[in-house]
Computed example of a mutant assay.
Amino acid sequence: MISQYINEFETLGFYFALACIFFLIGMAIQDVLKKGDVPKFGRYIVWLVLFLGCSGFIAKGVIQVFWQGAGVG
């Protein structure tokens, strides 16, 4: 029974691991910004870049799922 769902387990584990990595990166950036006494404008730019990177990765995954579902890729 588990062998039937091993692909789904691997996919969920992969996405959970990526979410953990993004969280840890965010915590590390927050720590560096606090210790470096960065002005507010610089903090906003850093968080904007981090958000755009994460959203781009998520968009890539969503596009890939739709393309594979349509038989394109």
Rank of each mutant, 00 (worst) to 15 (best):
L18R: 10
K60H: 12
G42Q: 03
Q30C: 04
M27P: 00
G26E: 00
F16Y: 06
I25K: 08
G71M: 00
G13L: 02
S55Y: 09
Q68T: 10
I45S: 05
Q68H: 11
A28W: 04
P39K: 03
L18E: 15
Q30T: 14
V32S: 08
N7G: 06
G53V: 02
F66S: 08
Q68M: 11
L24F: 12
L50G: 00
E8K: 07
W67S: 14
R43H: 02
L18F: 04
S55Q: 13
L33N: 00
G42I: 03
L50K: 07
E10K: 14
E8V: 06
K40P: 08
F66C: 04
A17F: 06
F66I: 09
I58G: 01
A28H: 05
S3V: 15
T11C: 07
K34A: 12
K34V: 07
Q64C: 05
F23D: 12
I63A: 11
Q30N: 15
Y5P: 03
V65C: 05
A70M: 09
G69I: 00
I6M: 13
T11E: 13
G71K: 01
G61V: 00
F57H: 04
Q30L: 10
Y44A: 08
P39L: 00
K34M: 08
L33W: 03
L18S: 06
I58L: 09
A59V: 03
A17C: 05
F41H: 07
A17L: 09
F23N: 10
S3G: 14
I63Y: 05
F16E: 12
F9A: 09
L33T: 01
I45D: 03
Y44T: 12
I2S: 15
I63W: 02
S55W: 06
Y5S: 13
L18Q: 10
L50R: 05
T11I: 10
R43I: 05
K40Y: 13
M27N: 09
E8R: 09
I45N: 04
G26R: 01
Y5F: 15
I29H: 01
D31F: 14
I58P: 00
W47H: 03
L48M: 12
K34Y: 10
E8Q: 14
C54F: 14
A28N: 07
A70P: 00
L33I: 08
L52I: 07
I6V: 15
L52R: 01
Q4A: 14
S55N: 12
T11S: 10
Y5R: 14
I6R: 14
G73I: 11
P39N: 05
I29E: 08
E10G: 05
F66H: 07
F41G: 10
I63F: 08
Y15L: 15
I25V: 15
A70R: 07
V62S: 05
Q30P: 01
I58F: 08
E10D: 14
G13V: 02
D37S: 12
D31S: 14
